[in-house]
């Protein structure tokens, strides 16, 4: 009996470790969730949303401009802690971010010339316990498992959600990230999300998300342009700045 108790203690100890993978059923992780802002994606994720902290991999064909739309609800949440967008492929537009309701004073953009500087800065930022979330577009070159594990541990230590955007080909490489999502853009403004891996849940489920408003996804029907087609040329309607010459009725010989 004593041996059984010892075994149970050892088992409990093992279960308390953060890196022990637990299947569904009695996961404590269900309590902590952040909604993604897309109900279809929330249903897909076993936790009902983004995890509170740790590494999440987003695998997509780069550059994937629509990807940031997926993250806007996450960045918009009223939480203390800053948000860092690191190594973005282009400049995130302040106007659009502001219109999407993001608190601009809490958003920082980080860029680095060298890959090692970038990774070190991200590691430091994630572990500093000052960030709510960090989105990193992975720099070129391979990311070894050790680096990914360090990023994950740093994000857990700093209570930060670390979203790592990587190219699709990285899906073949095993990763210590608990959650991996595969993204595809088939139609403009639509993202199809496939779960590559998730803690306590199944993989392989798929859903389709609409990230752009209707008028940006489909060109308007041709009749909408009829007005512009039938409009008279501007020169005909525009008043002339010069006074018209007085009409001459007759020409006298």
């Amino acid at each position: 009996m004593a041996g059984f108790n010892e075994n149970m203690d050892a088992l409990q100890q093992l279960l308390r470790r953060q890196d022990t993978w637990q299947g569904p059923g009695r996961g404590a992780a269900r309590e902590e969730r952040r909604h993604t802002g897309f109900p279809a994606l929330d249903r897909l994720l076993w936790q009902g949303g983004w995890p509170n902290q740790g590494l999440v991999e987003l695998l997509c064909p780069l550059p994937c401009p629509s990807l940031l739309h997926l993250l806007l609800p996450l960045l918009r949440r009223r939480e203390d802690g800053a948000r860092i967008i690191a190594n973005p492929p282009a400049r995130p537009s302040a106007t659009a971010l502001k219109r999407a309701g993001l608190p601009l004073e809490q958003i920082l953009v980080l860029q680095a010339r060298e890959r090692s500087t970038l990774l070190r800065a991200c590691l430091e930022a994630a572990s500093s316990d000052t960030l709510d979330s960090l989105v990193l577009w992975a720099p070129g070159g391979a990311l070894p498992t050790g680096t990914l594990r360090r990023l994950h541990m740093a994000a857990q230590q700093g209570r930060c959600l670390f979203l790592l955007v990587r190219p699709r080909r990285a899906s073949k490489q095993p990763s210590p990230a608990p959650l991996r999502l595969l993204l595809d853009v088939d139609q403009p403004g639509e993202l199809s999300v496939t779960v590559g891996k998730q803690p306590g849940g199944r993989h392989g489920q798929q859903c389709r998300l609409v990230v752009l408003p209707e008028h940006l996804r489909h060109p308007p029907p041709p009749c909408a342009t009829m007005a512009t087609r039938t409009r008279r040329p501007e020169t005909a309607t525009a008043p002339s700045p010069l006074a018209l010459p007085a009409p001459t009725s007759e020409v006298h010989p």
């Binding site: 802690g81 004073e105 953009v109 980080l110 860029q111 680095a112 010339r113 800065a121 000052t130």
Partner: peptide
């Protein structure tokens, strides 16, 4: 559960050579 002030992180990162850190603003 309060987070540490952001200024501590910014002080460390802001003068690192080869690193650009900015806030997007209108």
């Amino acid at each position: 559960g309060a987070r540490a002030p952001l200024s501590g992180l910014l002080e460390k990162l802001v003068d690192t050579p080869g690193l650009a850190l900015y806030r997007p603003a209108l």
